[in-house]
Design a binder for these strands. Structure first.
Lengths: 350, 350
DNA sequence: GGTTACATTTGGATCGTTCCAATCAGCGGA
DNA sequence: TCCGCTGATTGGAACGATCCAAATGTAACC
């Protein structure tokens, strides 16, 4: 059992109070609440009046206990303050809300350890399912031990390390990372770039590996070599990217363009370029990934790959909801397409 | 009762299973789970082994039902995708998680009607309290009828319309809106501006009225008149602001600077200025409010008021948690200070 | 009037936990 | 031997809802 904590709750009015208040049984009130056609019009009206009068609020926890059901879904993301995940979460919550579910929020801060704690705490609340965007470096084994094999899971955005047992069918919703960076790289090549770096992200995350792979394939297909120092890793945050960026220019030959892991590190790279006296979009071309709102507003506006995170959120929710409908259906794996959005940051050399 | 929806849940192992599995009573297992000093070391070890073996997960809902407590807090914000609220939510969730509570998420999309529905659905899950950033134009009466008078509420960011009954003490956490826009206005005046507009926001929101008041007071203190067409309202979003901005320039005399309701509308105004051939920061000065991440990256970087939304989130959570400790304490109202962050967008005329 | 059919209502057990009073084992002292 | 005491354990009733089989009332039919 995880850390325990609770708040006292004032005495609320219950089914029995209503029943007593208008001279029927608890069972009847329950039927009224659930809109059963069995109850007589007259008693229904009487009960509803009493419900209003006493200000009754339904206790879903008690109902769920008895019915052995759940009306909540846990959503675990890396970092809510990241606009990509914020949009995603907004989409999830929207779709879940429409379906009558409530969202339990958890945030891991990219730590596999914290993810364990958060999952542990969330499952105790008995969610009907979990939407998980895994922290970097987390393993199937860990997650499985935290959530058990009976709660449905939808994985978003990243794969987990390790192999999933055949018994538990988890659905996945991934972005077409490889295709995205391939398009971005081809775009840069088409604009005349030959020395193109891949910047940011950490290779123990599957999304980072995939994005690198797309870049590498495009380079290979064009017959272009990749210098080792053109691959610079960083945390997927702007601040970390600024610090890491200078490594790009330590060796020869220097790159003239970079495909970045995501928009955050691309924006960080832009800052670092300014610090070095290079003007992004003129002296150096770069592309991002995610198309967060800031991408259109940066200086210069950032060429990037649009992932429509809000739509992805809705999609993840729908994936989970349909899994709840049919727990035995075979696992689905959706790869959502991404779209290249060309802006000023990649308009050099052409 | 709100819209009903639920997912079937697989048979989980319970206290009784554990008890049967190692030949003790349910009560003893329960004591072990809660770390009671009453149980003997030997039986404790035996029980803990069995818990591990069967992969037991604690059912907090059942426990909360019996103990008449709650271990969740509902967080209702206007729009998660707004970075200000995303940061705020991250702060809330962080602090609640540390205290062993879980966050129930709800989002209103600035609609008082939807807020009612969301609150209705959330209270059925029996949160220990609610952190609410009210939708524009929502009333005490509505909220009270949705949440009842026994669930503690922390209001953030905006006041509700109407008067709160003395019986229910709701805490508040507001930003020092008036002081913020006063500082921004004084800053613009100090840089030589005389014709300063107030742009964006809607006056049925208390935060908007307060920010306008700060602006008006600074103008008045400096003996500067305010032309009626210098007050242009808009929804607090970038897109709506772009459309509304042109009204600023319909009458004479035209303003040379604007204090904006928040960063989103300021960024929208920047776009509109560009469309009119004016360069913000050179031909026209403006300030925002919130200091969202984009503010530092816009072109030019935006002078704004920093509200530290993540810290505010933690603060709101702490306010609620201490209320749970002492439900009878008198209501607290905190006005968080804001800080003027001067960047390029306000550097004209000086 | 008695039987059947139908529409409505209901008592009591139940979900998984906690609380409480009661029980039990073991031991030392009178 | 009996008593009281301490430490450990336990059965059964609750929490607030739902489920189910059974009971009730009414009308219809022969």
């Amino acid at each position: 059992m995880a850390k325990e904590s609770s708040a006292p709750v004032h005495r609320k009015t219950t089914l029995s109070d209503i029943a007593a208040g208008c001279g029927v049984s608890r069972a009847t009130v329950s039927l009224v609440l659930r809109g059963s056609p069995l109850v007589n019009q007259r008693t229904r009206a009487k009960v509803e009046e009493e419900l209003r009068r006493q200000g009754y609020v339904y206790n879903r926890a008690a109902a769920n206990l008895r019915r052995r059901t759940s009306s909540s879904i846990a959503l675990v993301v890396n970092e809510l303050a990241n606009p990509f995940f914020a949009e995603f979460a907004a989409g999830v919550d929207e779709a879940l809300g429409e379906a009558g579910f409530v969202t339990l929020l958890g945030s891991t801060g990219e730590s596999a350890q914290r993810q364990q704690a958060v999952l542990g705490s969330l499952v105790e609340h008995g969610p009907g399912g979990i939407i998980l965007s895994p922290a970097e470096g987390s393993e199937v084994r860990e997650v499985l031990s935290a959530v058990g094999s009976h709660t449905p899971v939808v994985l978003f955005n990243r794969e987990l390390g390790g192999r999933l047992p055949a018994s538990s069918h988890w659905d996945r919703l991934m972005l077409d990372n490889e295709r995205g960076t391939r398009m971005a790289t081809e775009h840069l090549i088409a604009h005349g770039h030959r020395r193109i770096a891949f910047f940011g992200g950490h290779d123990d995350a599957s999304s980072s590996r995939d994005r690198y792979a797309g870049y590498a394939k495009a380079m290979q297909a064009a017959g272009l070599p990749i210098a080792p120092h053109w691959r610079v890793e960083s945390k997927p945050t702007r601040t970390d990217a600024v610090a890491a960026a200078h490594a790009l220019f330590q060796g020869e030959p220097k790159p003239t363009a970079a495909v970045c892991y995501n928009d955050a590190v691309a924006l960080g790279l832009m800052l670092a370029l300014h610090q070095r006296g290079l003007q992004p979009g003129r002296d150096f071309a770069l592309t991002g990934f995610d198309d967060i709102a800031e991408a259109a507003l940066s200086m210069p506006p950032l060429t990037t790959l649009s992932t429509a995170p809000r739509a992805r959120g809705r999609q993840a929710a729908e994936l989970l909801l349909s899994r709840l409908q049919d727990p035995q259906a075979s696992a689905r794996a959706i790869v959502a397409p991404v779209e290249l959005v060309v802006r000023e940051s990649s308009r050099t050399l052409s």
